Amino acid sequence: METGFTRRRLTDREAGTVLASLRAWEPSAGCGWQLQAGDLGWALRFEPAIRDEQIRVWWDATGRCAAVILCDQPGSARCAVNPAYLHDSTLADAVLADLSRRLDRAGGGPWIDPPPGPGALTRALLAAGYEPDPDIWLHLWRPLPGAVAEPPAEPTVRAFRSADAAQRVAVQHAAFPGSSLTPERYQRLRAVPGYRAELDLVGTVDDRITAFCLAWLGPPGGTALLEPAGTHPGHRRRGHASAVIAEAFRRLARLGATGVAVLTPVSNRPAVALYRALGFTAVAERRSYWPAPP
């Protein structure tokens, strides 16, 4: 079998193929470990020029997707690798060489998040002098359907509507200061393969959006992803995010998902506490790798 790999920009025509590949690489049951389809789906909201900078797709000699790299934060890269190539040193060396050129070291980077376990990319990082970042991320998972609390009187939880765009974007910015979301990007997001309108949820009080959650299906019968979920600061600690996420659980279960995953830093204690209260348990720790200090 040929072992040559090439990287090229992700076209709109190929986006569905790459998203399907990410879903296929996920285990059919239990918790997904790598960059997931929902992560890439959320990143596809950007304009083509930004997507070209953030998304790097590698293909094998037969035209099969071999690896997907998402550089959606300054100096960082999250990597998913086709299980057939997890231990392929040729692909790992090519990916690392490309990322070393691509990622700058501003702010102490680059941070590279390889697939977990002793795969070829992790071995290549260690051989190149990288070391694990001390900051730990928790991979949290919850089975579906599981016990789901009855919806409270407030907020009212429903699917996003086109007329909500300006409000939805404003609440995203309030929940995550510095967010890059715009109404135009939200419109683009809604055209991404894999986006499902019934899984794009908002919580409202007096017709004002207070919380939101966007869920993405994984492989059939597998793990779904929440990306993003948040609450307006003026409505935190009132159960609004919990209500929206609980409705996402119900809808995901009806669509055949058997579990749902989130990834959050250990240092984000409020988020960890919220997810644990919703029935999530930590199933793995994730660490990025960065160059050892000289």
Rank of each mutant, 00 (worst) to 15 (best):
S179V: 14
A261I: 01
A149Y: 09
G146L: 00
W58H: 13
V244A: 08
A166P: 08
L274M: 12
L252M: 14
P265I: 01
A106L: 06
D113N: 00
Q187W: 07
P118L: 10
A211V: 02
A106C: 02
R269H: 14
G41A: 13
D88W: 02
G221R: 01
E131I: 05
L121K: 10
A84I: 02
A175N: 00
L35G: 02
R101F: 05
P177Y: 07
R13N: 11
R56H: 15
Y85D: 09
P155D: 07
S21N: 00
P83K: 03
E47N: 11
A284I: 08
D52M: 00
L189C: 06
P134A: 09
L181R: 11
R45W: 05
A80D: 06
R185Q: 15
A37I: 06
P83E: 09
N268M: 08
G119A: 15
R142K: 01
S162A: 05
Y289S: 01
E14L: 10
V57E: 05
W25F: 10
V192P: 02
F176H: 05
D60V: 12
D133M: 04
D164F: 05
W33E: 12
R286G: 06
R158Y: 08
P219I: 08
C31T: 10
G239K: 07
G218P: 05
R269T: 13
R45L: 03
P114N: 03
V262C: 07
A292V: 09
R276M: 11
V81K: 11
A166H: 10
A165L: 03
L35P: 00
L214A: 01
E198N: 09
V205G: 13
L274E: 12
V266G: 08
R123Y: 00
E198W: 09
Q54N: 11
A191Y: 13
A29S: 11
A29R: 10
A215T: 00
L126N: 10
T11W: 03
A175M: 01
D206L: 10
G194H: 14
D93A: 11
R185I: 03
H87A: 02
E198M: 03
S89Q: 10
A77W: 05
S162D: 06
G279L: 02
T122Y: 04
G16I: 04
L126V: 14
P114F: 02
S162N: 06
A224R: 06
L19M: 04
A166V: 15
D93E: 11
W290R: 15
L70Q: 05
L274F: 13
T62I: 07
F176L: 04
G119P: 14
E14M: 01
R7G: 07
P294D: 15
A253S: 06
A67K: 02
V157K: 12
P193A: 14
T62V: 08
P228E: 06
D104T: 11
W137Q: 03
A97Q: 15
V260Y: 01
A211Y: 09
V169D: 03
G218L: 10
G63F: 12
P114R: 02
A67F: 03
P293L: 00
P293H: 01
A153Y: 01
F212I: 12
G203Y: 07
D39W: 14
E53L: 09
S76R: 15
S28K: 15
E26Q: 15
R250M: 01
A61M: 07
Q54P: 05
A94S: 13
Y186N: 14
A241N: 04
P177D: 03
G129L: 04
S242C: 12
I55K: 08
G256I: 00
G63K: 13
L181E: 14
